[in-house]
Structure formats: C-alpha cells, structure tokens
Design a protein around this nucleic acid. Structure first.
Lengths: 186, 186
DNA sequence: TCTAGCATGTAAACAGTTACATGATTGC
DNA sequence: GCAATCATGTAACTGTTTACATGCTAGA
C-alpha cells in the first residue's frame, strides 16, 4: 500500500495535521495520488501505532500535528529504494478501446476524437499549473517539476496516439470492408 | 466499476465460462485490466441476476457457459458511449519521484535510471507481443493493435522522460548546491 | 495411477469511496 | 449572529487480493 508512504513523504517535509495532509493530497499530489480525509485520519492512527509518526503539538479545535519519527524516515527510505511492484495498472480508456469494435464505426471514431481532446485538456491544465507555481531551486521543487514534465509528455503521447487511432478507424471504413470480429489475443 | 463491463465486452465476442474469462484477463487484457477468478465468478452471478448475461450450455466438470443478453449488449453500448470518469489515476512511480528529494542524490538518480530501464523492458515486451500475435484484419484485431500502439508510445515517452529526469538530477549535483527542501505545491 | 490442467466457488483481509456526524473558531 | 472554513472522526459499502477449499477429467 502506498497511502501510508505518501503520508510519510509529506511528513518528511515537516509536521502536519490530518486536515493539512488532506489538502496536500487535493493540491500537490492531485495528479499522482488521491486520498480522502476519511482514509487519512484512520491511517495516521495506524501509523502512530506502528511508531512511524508521533503526535506533537495539539492545537485549537482538536488539531493534532503529526511528526515523522526516525523509524518512519527509515521506512520511507526503504520504500523509495525497494523495487516498484509490477502490478497491472488498470486503464479504463484502453479497456474501452479494446471493445470499440462493438460500436458503429462513427461512434468508435468519435470516442477516439474525444479521447484526443481530453488528453489535450489535461496537457493544458498541467501547463497552466507549471506557469502558476512559483518554482524555486530546492530539490523538492526539482522533483515536482520532473513529475509535471512526465505528465506533459504522456499527455502529448496519448493525444497524438488518439489522433492516429481515429485515422486508423476512418481509414478502414472507406477502404476494405472489415468483418465484424474473431477471437483475439492481445 | 469497470470489471462487469470488461466481462460484458469479452462476452460480446462470444460465450465463455468463468474459467475462460479468467484466462482472457491474464492474456488479452493483461496490459489493460486485471481480475482474479475469485472476483470473476461472483461478478458473473450478479450479472446474471441483473439480466446482463445468462447461463447457456453447462458442460463437463461443472462448466457453465455465459452468454451476453440484449440487455447486456445495451449496457455495454451505454458504457462505451458514456463520458470517461475523470478520477485521479494513482501512479506509484510518480508518487515516489515526488519524494526523491529525501534520498541522497546518487540514489535518486539510480531510481530514475532504473525507471528508464523498466520502461524499455515494457516496450520490448509489447514489441514482442506485437510480433507474436497473428493479427488479422477484423475490427476487433484493429482495436487490439490500437491498444498495443498506445502502450508502445507511452512506454517510449516514459523511458525518454526518465533519461532526461536522471540528467536533471545529476546536472544539479556538480553545478549549484541546492538546499535540502522547502514546502512545495505541484 | 498419477499429474496437470479444467472448473467453480467462498472467506478474510485490505483499500478506497461516499455518506453521516459533530463541533470550534475566525472574520464579516 | 452567521457563514466559511478549520478540524476530526465513524459507518456502510464497493472493489480487489490472497488464501482456503473442492472435485473432475484427459492423457502420459
């Protein structure tokens, strides 16, 4: 599970309350990982029980500030240097593309044209973010820029692919007559 | 939820048992969606209760063959033509990159070099798949090729990004001295 | 005969989302 | 006084993984 490590990573940047962590998931981490407060609060309790974090200052309105411990830092490092799990990442866009043969050609093509538009929207949103953020030359901001750059590159790749894919489909419909289906194995 | 729609899509290609569907998730759909038999069997029961599929032939060893119904086909079409949900897709690679500033520079760089190698492995695996599959000119195989092509393009984009990112990190360490961190907002 | 693969299921645990629930404080 | 927002939690439900559990059949 990565949620606890995401929290650990955020706390490595300084102590924070569950409320503040929730906001960081909605802002900083929005494009990379998401978590609701209803998941964060219980997780912080488990992490405290495991000794990865401790409650430091308790402020107004029941505010509890969590700090990362030495054990927590060690766990964060262990996680960062352990091999990435190679589980299949689910991709609903591609799942749908796989079954696009069941639609009429024009609907399949529209799907891909929409997908291209969506990818370009995401690119534009990330571009705007990049401009809006007052990046400095800290190492943490460098990493933020690296993350954003991957977002931009992948969005571009997907937009270009979707354009190309839409063409492949329309190329089929005025040239040869393709049959409806046959069992496939990707 | 997409699992039931993935199953619907597979059954649109012809009737199949839970066992056969499980194999299709492991083979055809491996790069796009995953599901275990322990999720598939109960899901088929729910789909049958909803009238999306029916049990047709029952064969040896308790084999039950499921067929998609007209209701199921309508639901598949509805799903394919409905807007893609825009939930944050979790990305553990980028999550880790975000916290790479907590590592020593050489470890952060190694992380990215490894990420580039991983992306190239994935690319090679997909390339091999492409060659191994006896594609025909059906519409379903066309869609399979589109899916595979996106995999190749995204893998390339990530490999190139990771090379570039590793350079950005090593560029930092012999030039200016970056401070350790400061609050960031991506 | 025995092994591999066919074939189906359930249970427990974990992860994540949505909804419910409550109360304090700051600033207008 | 009231609204916004700070602040924390729990419960119910859905989705996913891992482990448990069982039995049949074809072929070597």
């Amino acid at each position: 599970m990565s949620l606890r490590h995401a929290i650990l990573g955020l706390l490595a940047g300084g102590p924070a309350s569950g409320y503040e962590l929730t906001k960081q998931f909605d802002l900083s981490l929005a494009n990379v990982w998401s978590a609701r407060h209803s998941q964060i609060y219980p997780e912080l309790q488990k992490m405290a029980a495991a000794g990865w974090v401790v409650v430091g200052e308790e402020g107004a309105r029941g505010r509890k500030e969590y700090e990362i411990t030495a054990v927590g830092r060690a766990e964060l490092e262990r996680w960062l240097t352990s091999p990435l799990p190679e589980r299949t990442q689910r991709n609903e866009l591609l799942l749908r593309v796989f079954f696009l043969w069941t639609l009429r050609e024009e609907d399949a093509e529209r799907f891909l044209v929409d997908a291209a538009a969506r990818a370009r929207e995401i690119h534009a949103r990330l571009d705007a973010l990049d401009v809006a953020i007052p990046w400095d030359d800290t190492r943490s901001d460098l990493m933020g820029r690296l993350v954003l750059e991957q977002g931009l590159r992948v969005a571009t790749a997907i937009a270009d692919w979707a354009d190309w894919a839409a063409e492949q489909i329309s190329a089929g419909h005025d040239a040869l007559h393709l049959t409806d289906r046959s069992p496939t194995q990707l």
